[in-house]
């Protein structure tokens, strides 16, 4: 474990808590893409199946349960509890165009062709594009509430910090995982446009307006 990965996990946890708190407090999921949340739940479910087969550390196990529980809780809030506030009209990204190619790629490019490893690889590829429905929704509505942009900033930062972690691990342990690195770079690049707007606008108190 290193400071980059620790702050990365913290940023990830903060993002999830910001979102849950926003939906719970405002009792509304307006502006939130339920489809991205479904993709995240699919990412954690397929990635953390190894909870039953291997043990890394109490931290690792605890965080996996937290991510699984919070992602399903968020889906419950969006599709069940506050489903009246769910914005069907703007959350229209075809997620099958993200799931199927990720699965196909995971079957073709992986470290080992066995069940858990292919699912892990699928979760890595899917996570890199899981935010697209949310970014698409923000661009369709043309704007995002500032709390939603804080959520996106924290979520985007988590994988950017993981890139620093991978550099650090390669430099100190000679350890690297190309699949995770390439997907992580793609994932972070997808946020760049948003990062620019967040830093130039939201931090100056303006509303986040994405060119529709």
């Amino acid at each position: 474990m290193n400071i980059f990965r620790l702050t990365g996990d913290l940023a990830h946890l903060i993002a999830i808590i910001i979102l849950l708190h926003k939906i719970w407090k405002s009792r509304s999921c307006a502006g939130i893409s339920g489809k991205s949340q479904v993709l995240f739940a699919l990412v954690y479910t397929t990635r953390y199946l190894d909870l039953v087969t291997s043990y890394v550390s109490i931290y690792n196990t605890f965080m996996k349960f937290v991510f699984l529980a919070t992602s399903y809780a968020t889906i419950y809030l969006i599709y069940v509890k506050f489903k009246a506030t769910y914005d069907h009209n703007h959350d229209t990204f075809r997620i099958e165009f993200l799931i199927l190619p990720s699965l196909a790629l995971a079957l073709l490019i992986n470290h080992y062709f066995n069940f858990l490893e292919v699912l892990w690889t699928f979760s890595i590829y899917l996570e890199s594009v899981a935010i697209l429905p949310q970014l698409f929704m923000v661009s369709k509505t043309g704007e995002a509430e500032s709390i939603t942009s804080h959520y996106l900033f924290a979520l985007g930062s988590y994988r950017a910090l993981y890139i620093l972690n991978w550099i650090y691990r390669y430099a100190t342990e000679g350890h690297y995982d190309l699949i995770a690195i390439v997907a992580g770079v793609v994932q972070t690049v997808l946020y760049c446009d948003f990062f620019y707007l967040y830093i130039t606008k939201v931090l100056k108190g303006k509303k986040l307006q994405l060119p529709a």
Partner: peptide, 10 residues
């Protein structure tokens, strides 16, 4: 040449 990798990252 183990068939399973221990993924230690979240």
């Amino acid at each position: 040449h183990e068939e399973t990798i221990l993924h230690d990252e979240l």
